[in-house]
Design a protein around this nucleic acid. Sequence first.
DNA 1: CTGAAAGCGCTTACAG
DNA 2: CTGAAAGCGCTTACAG
Lengths: 350, 350
Amino acid sequence: MSKHRSVTIVDIAEAAGVSIATVSNVLNRRKVPMSEETIRKVEKAAEELGYRRNVMAASLSRKKSYELGLIVPGFIGYYGVFAEEMERTAHRFGYHMSVFSAGGYDPDMEKRHLDVLLQRRVDGLFCHGLAMSTETTRQIVSDGTPLVLFNGWNWPEDIAVGAVNLDFADGCRKAVKHLVEQGCRSLFYLERARAHETNKQRLLGFHDGVKQWAPDIPSFVLDGDTRPLQELVRMTKEMSGGRGPVGILAFDDLVALRFMSAVLEEGMKVPEDYKIHGINNDVISSSCYPQLTTLDIPYSQQAQLAIRLMLAELGEEEKLARASQLPPLPAREGNEIRIPLTPMLRKSTQ
Amino acid sequence: MSKHRSVTIVDIAEAAGVSIATVSNVLNRRKVPMSEETIRKVEKAAEELGYRRNVMAASLSRKKSYELGLIVPGFIGYYGVFAEEMERTAHRFGYHMSVFSAGGYDPDMEKRHLDVLLQRRVDGLFCHGLAMSTETTRQIVSDGTPLVLFNGWNWPEDIAVGAVNLDFADGCRKAVKHLVEQGCRSLFYLERARAHETNKQRLLGFHDGVKQWAPDIPSFVLDGDTRPLQELVRMTKEMSGGRGPVGILAFDDLVALRFMSAVLEEGMKVPEDYKIHGINNDVISSSCYPQLTTLDIPYSQQAQLAIRLMLAELGEEEKLARASQLPPLPAREGNEIRIPLTPMLRKSTQ
DNA sequence: CTGAAAGCGCTTACAG
DNA sequence: CTGAAAGCGCTTACAG
């Protein structure tokens, strides 16, 4: 209430005429037995004084912060939605999620954020497949704070307790199949090399798909970040040799939308001349015209799995039990959980 | 280094052969004088032991957390970008920003988040014009934690130390002027009523604009959330009476894009039949086709102003001084700082 | 220039 | 069922 000193358990103890230990016991509903009377008095005092627990003190004393850290490259598109979902899910399990945006794939930023989070003594850390090196990461988390990766591939087990990965490779394989079935006579993957591993997985799937479904169709990989889009469109036109619909698989829906806009601006038609396939089922993919075929991402599933993995590591079995009505943990290969992506077929490829 | 007990200043003190007070002094580079020798020894020990400060302990002892809280309705669109900018800016001033997403305009969520933040003893709070009532908010922040609003209008001064608002009203006035100049013969504002005050400000500007620039042109307000878009398009077509280009001012770029898509799907043309004006200069507005005319938002300016307002309130004058090369604080009316929006003219209205 | 001591607000054995 | 006491890791007057 006062502007300058907040109410503490000492105040409550005085007001209720009990010890601070008892106040603490009552307020934390521990399994220790206590009289109705005491409970009533303490709760009343706490209420009247407008008590608000100081979590820093509690964490310090308990040596556990109930805070989890999350580092994402940014808040737009996939990562923003995922961060929101992680935050919500953490809350459901009684944890607080501290989210950091590294402003892109920046190793220095990631290092600094990791440091800050560790200084805050978070109980666990979630990171996308980091921009940092294995060695740097190992050093940083060597203090024993568990690290769970999402969309991180090929990380040694001694660094991360596990990874929860979207199966981009498989999704892209299916995307290629779809484009081929729709009659595309040439295939392009519009990559984003600076997205590191998350790009490589797509690339892998693209190549696999081509090999499997269209070994005889010319296929190319272009980096969407290196040139103006108009130029890219012209390149695809030329490289495709005018032999029929061009199939485009884009790194994500935003890249897809931009490319599509450039195509339309050049006076060509989607899906007649170009069939365009995005990834993420971003809200924009269903808001644009024509709507974009894309891969849907089960955000809440990914968030739940990541957090359950963490809680298991933290030995919070009871909280996991409470969540037993959730779908069981899928099969793991090594320490990776792979989550399938669902195609969303829309106008842009049909 | 150990997996189970992290290094404390006690360890450093032992290793360096000094007291913990000295360790603390060295590590925090206070203005107290100390010998080169001591500094060297302590730093060496800290380095070798892999010391990482426990900020909870430091905050508790110092009674200041250097943590700031931010509550936004979500991470997509404007709020995501703004949150990122706030986080970055806070860091620059030596603060940590804890961001919460309320998952929409949900009073209960906002209350809970506010509570959590207060339990963490954040030094200050940033909120958008809350979904909560004045009274509820007053109760919650009555403990003296300063509250700075962004895009919050008409809040009593005893609750918030100030507000940093985007001037949507003025922006929308200009938008109407632009649409009229481009020859629109009817005007629509596609509102989003559930966005509360941030919608009302736009509405205000729309009405003002109509009154000033097009008192004789029929104008209407439609809520984009209440009906399917196709239906809205048909309604606008009917209400406009086919007397020339229809002017649309949308709540934001996403609403604008969706409406535009529906228009195109109906076989009509943008900008010939419909001229569409968004708000936010969201990345989608320049990624779609035709590109959307919109209002640009000076994110970094808004974030800086909000944080400087807070730091001033917290008495961090020195940190503000360090930032003196920043643009000066704009004029304030009451406790409001109003930031103008810049029109970005693009294809969709020309 | 350095250190002993009190204190930040809470939790947790442990004794009663 | 309740409370005295130690302790979490750090900071900050203050004395020397």
